[in-house]
């Protein structure tokens, strides 16, 4: 009995101290964490619908047993000019979360992959910028004067392909093709998953909208 009490107290003490410590750290990091998260979302929202001036609150739509989260997109006069759909699907080794900006008729404005942890070098290339930086240029760049790179956010080439496509055109192909989505080489599963994460919510959304579910 006595030993159990003793053990219990020791554990309680350690856990208690750890708990207090954690709450202290939490107090410091809480602000920056939520800030970083909302910043990432805001950036994504802006990228997925560049012409928008403001966004509505997060809304939920349940249809066919699936849930789509979406934002309404407003122009300066507070008119709805489109929607942004938030949807996630299973990729090759992680959940892929995509934000898709669409016009009211379902045409894609732009997409933004918010979260993914696919294989580096293969699937993770969905985030790859069309960079030509090599080690050689990086080293020589250190010694030469750095040119000011424009602050403009670059869009990964894979994600840029989706802009301006209708849902019917969202088909993954393996050979380069302007009309469809060209798969990342060696990462067909990831490419298909991203495409699905764009196409599926659009179709569900349009269907629900036609049925007057909004």
């Amino acid at each position: 009995m006595k030993t159990i009490l003793h053990y219990g107290l020791v554990l309680l003490l350690i856990a208690g101290v750890a708990g207090v410590g954690l709450s202290l750290v939490d107090r410091i990091t809480k602000g920056p964490i939520s800030e970083a998260q909302s910043k990432r979302l805001e950036e994504g929202q802006k990228l997925a619908f560049p012409s928008a001036s403001s966004f509505g609150e997060l809304k939920k739509l349940e249809t066919d047993g699936k849930t789509i989260e979406y934002y309404e997109v407003f122009d300066e006069g507070k008119n709805v000019i489109g929607y942004e759909l938030l949807y996630s699907v299973g990729g090759y080794q992680s959940r892929i979360k995509v934000l898709t900006g669409i016009e009211p008729d379902g045409k894609v404005v732009a997409i933004r992959v918010l979260e993914q942890a696919e294989t580096p070098g293969l699937g993770a290339e969905v985030d790859a910028l069309p960079s030509s930086d090599t080690i050689f240029s990086a080293i020589t760049g250190l010694f030469s004067k750095k040119e000011d790179k424009s602050e403009e956010v670059q869009i990964p080439w894979f994600q840029a392909q989706f802009s301006g496509k209708t849902p019917e055109e969202l088909i993954v192909v393996k050979t380069k093709d302007q009309k469809h989505i060209t798969a990342l080489s060696g990462a067909t599963i990831t490419s298909t998953a991203v495409t699905k994460a764009v196409k599926e919510p659009i179709e569900l959304f349009l269907k629900a909208k036609a049925e007057g579910q909004l």
């Binding site: 750290v25 939490d26 990091t29 920056p32 964490i33």
Partner: peptide, 11 residues
């Protein structure tokens, strides 16, 4: 602690 610090300061 490390996890929270990284999430906060190196997103």
């Amino acid at each position: 602690v490390v996890d929270m610090l990284i999430a906060g300061f190196a997103p």
